[in-house]
């Protein structure tokens, strides 16, 4: 690892660092093999940059990924089994309510995935965190997948209950906009020849798109929509039978862990891909 080509090098060779960055993190911190100096420093920004070391990230995530993936699979399977076979059917909607156990967690994950994308974008723009750059790139397609899952299951749920596959309702429209924002981000970060430019442009776009999140959240309160208002809130008691709430929460936890596992796996792959490319470049330079 020490002195080996890694993503921090790519970030280092980019441009002259600003004075502010020089104060918070000396340039040598970016060259790798800095565990000793950094682990002792108490500053939060330095702690942030500890994980910029790709070797450290690969070690930690390699240990974390298998239990994460296994827990996600077990929880999701248990939640589905409980929700699909044991939880009671709705007195009005019948068995079609069971789509909820996929639809609601997917919707939560699509929205919180965008929050994660926005946080990564802030880290990327403000601290030029190389791992946050890659994380933002990798969260995009996963979040788009969950948004698509939410829209597809919502459409399947809408047909038996509302009588239509799709309604131009505020909640549905704002979710569709979120899906397009994800797709725009995915297309944008990959559209530049210089990956650094793609990271910055994608980060700015992700932050502009954050305005859609409160619109999704409050669309059911602001407009008189066909989509039902929130059943589960942080402040009040849920207006939902507990026998349905538990499998839903287990599914949501399973989906969350699954989202984290997929993003971690993709991020590991991206870091290793970077490393291979850097090694190949170095070899080509030596032989040529």
């Amino acid at each position: 690892m020490r002195g080996g080509p890694d993503i921090t090098r790519a970030a280092h060779g980019r441009k002259l660092p600003e004075p502010a960055r020089l104060q918070t993190a000396p340039a040598r911190d970016y060259v790798g093999g800095v565990d000793a100096t950094l682990s002792r420093s108490p500053q939060p920004v330095r702690n942030l940059h500890r994980f910029a070391n790709p070797g450290r990230f690969l070690r930690i995530s390699g240990r974390l990924l298998p239990p994460l993936a296994v827990a996600a699979a077990i929880l999701t399977a248990a939640g589905f089994a409980w929700g699909l076979f044991f939880a009671p059917a709705d007195w009005q909607q019948g068995d079609s309510v069971r789509i909820m156990y996929v639809h609601v967690p997917a919707a939560w994950l699509a929205s919180s995935g965008y929050v994660a994308l926005a946080v990564c974008s802030v880290l990327s723009l403000v601290w030029r965190h190389p791992l946050a750059d890659l994380a933002a790139v990798e969260i995009g397609p996963v979040g788009a997948g969950f948004a698509a899952l939410c829209l597809a299951t919502g459409s399947l749920w809408g047909k038996p209950t509302w009588g239509a596959w799709w309604v131009w309702d505020a909640r549905l429209t704002s979710m569709l906009v979120l899906f397009f924002l994800y797709l725009g981000h995915v297309a944008l970060v990959r559209a530049f020849d210089d990956p650094q430019r793609g990271y910055r442009a994608g980060a700015i776009l992700a932050l502009v798109g954050v305005v859609d999140l409160p619109i999704i959240k409050f669309s059911v309160d602001w407009w008189n929509t066909l989509h039902q208002p929130s059943t589960i809130t942080l402040t009040g008691a849920p207006s939902m039978y507990v026998g349905m709430l538990w499998p839903l929460l287990i599914c949501a936890l399973g989906f969350t862990l699954g989202f984290a596992a997929i993003v971690t796996a993709r991020l590991r792959a991206a870091v290793m891909e970077r490393r291979i490319r850097a090694l190949l470049m170095a070899r080509a330079r030596e032989s040529g």
């Binding site: 906009v177 297309a187 944008l188 530049f192």
Partner: peptide, 17 residues
């Protein structure tokens, strides 16, 4: 600015917003 196929990307980014 500076993206490949920037002209195609632009509506994709602006229209949802």
């Amino acid at each position: 600015l500076g993206a490949r196929r920037g002209g195609v990307l632009l509506p994709l980014l602006v229209l949802p917003l």
